[in-house]
Design a protein around this nucleic acid. Structure first.
Lengths: 221, 221
DNA sequence: TACATCTTATATGGATACATATAGCAACAT
DNA sequence: ATGTTGCTATATGTATCCATATAAGATGTA
């Protein structure tokens, strides 16, 4: 039999990483929660080794933090750190729009329009979780259209960090419609190849969310 | 005896990470080189466990890549990937200049001026390695002045990736003096609180280096 | 009662042992 | 001679075992 060279077996640690990320994003694991290796090992039915690998990865992602001999806990972000994150996110999101304006393909345009339609219907139904999902799709479509793989990676990483807080801004009355309008303006600027405008609009769009964070953080405790 | 609570013991894997990074930056480990866990374990006098932790971290940094069941190798960057990196680096470096212009403290200004003086003397002596060092200090001083910790992290990470290639542009005759002039213009813009100009100048400064990469990559093989 | 010191439990960090998939090589058949 | 098949060696992935630092609790004394 020919050796199945393409068949790459999944590693247990990779599965764990996905699972733990999911647990963090879904709120099952809250900032400050302690992660005990033995617990996780029994819970997932594997030994401590892959658990430790997964934890190390998540530490490198910035989702967890460890103190030597003290184990891992879900990282708690201060208001300053969150603000810093949003500032960089705004810059890179704007950059993605600029690049997308230059390089836009028909396929990219279709993807952006499709995600925009998702946003529209969710906003109409005032369905916040669905809108949040559609919002991610909209941004992801633009990221992809930028054609810069490293930029996409960075934005994914940042998004993983602020994902937990991303739902909250939409709770504000009227924010959904406002967000949708901004999305329309941004995509229009991209479609008309106005990179500078698209950049600015996206930056403002992001900063608007970031600006609300202090009050949102207060609401957390 | 009172427990020495502040004394945090270093983990072996952390030391290994630093060592391996150094080996990669210094060129001892070249892109494409295979890393065998057992080899490293004997070389560093530790077991495979901390070796694996270190490798995992470096993979997450993007310095290494692994194929399941095939182990780790120093990541090889394609021209496209390098270009993407420089594009993002240029954007973020520009952003750091903009923020630094707004937030500049006296201490930050002193640091930037000091690093600039290092650049000047190295350029005068036409000492490329020393200039490269001073150049890093100049950029680092600006990063710090931006006041955005996450931005500093991201720039460090990107720099780790392109560090290997960073010496080469200076081989071009006259590039040292040109680079120094650009540094002066950038710091002047920051000192006069002209954030938009500082942003643009730094972006151009970075892109100029990035633009030379294709020819530099050809010279590699 | 309060404080300090010692003991002990436990969880992390590291070492080692084991299972298995991949790759290289050889032998055989066509 | 070439291509295929099967064996074997080896390195990765996982499990388990051991050492030790930390922290909590107990005990004794002032």
């Amino acid at each position: 039999m020919k050796h199945t060279k393409g068949l790459r077996m999944a590693r247990a640690s990779d599965t764990l990483i996905e699972q733990l990320k999911h647990d963090i994003f879904s709120g099952l694991l809250k900032p400050g929660d302690q992660l005990e290796e033995a617990d996780l090992a029994t819970r997932f039915g594997v030994s401590r080794t892959p658990i430790r690998e997964a934890i190390r990865s998540l530490v490198d992602c910035g989702l967890l933090e460890t103190r030597p001999r003290k184990g891992a806990m879900v990282r708690v972000l201060t208001a300053k750190e969150l603000n810093d994150l949003f500032e960089v996110a705004a810059e890179l999101e704007g950059m993605a729009c600029r690049l997308a304006s230059d390089l836009l393909t028909l396929s990219d345009k279709k993807d952006i329009e499709a995600s925009l339609e998702l946003c529209r219907s969710a906003a109409e139904a005032e369905d916040i979780p669905t809108y949040a999902e559609a919002n991610l799709a909209f941004h992801a479509a633009i990221h992809k259209a930028s054609g810069n793989a490293w930029l996409v990676d960075q934005l994914d990483q940042i998004q993983a960090r602020i994902n937990v807080y991303r739902l909250m801004p939409y709770e504000v009355v009227g924010r959904l419609e406002k967000s949708l309008t901004e999305h329309r303006e941004i995509s229009d600027a991209i479609f008309t190849k106005n990179g500078a405008l698209a950049n600015t609009l996206m930056r403002d769009h992001m900063m608007l969310q970031g600006a609300r964070l202090p009050s949102l953080l207060n609401a957390l405790e």
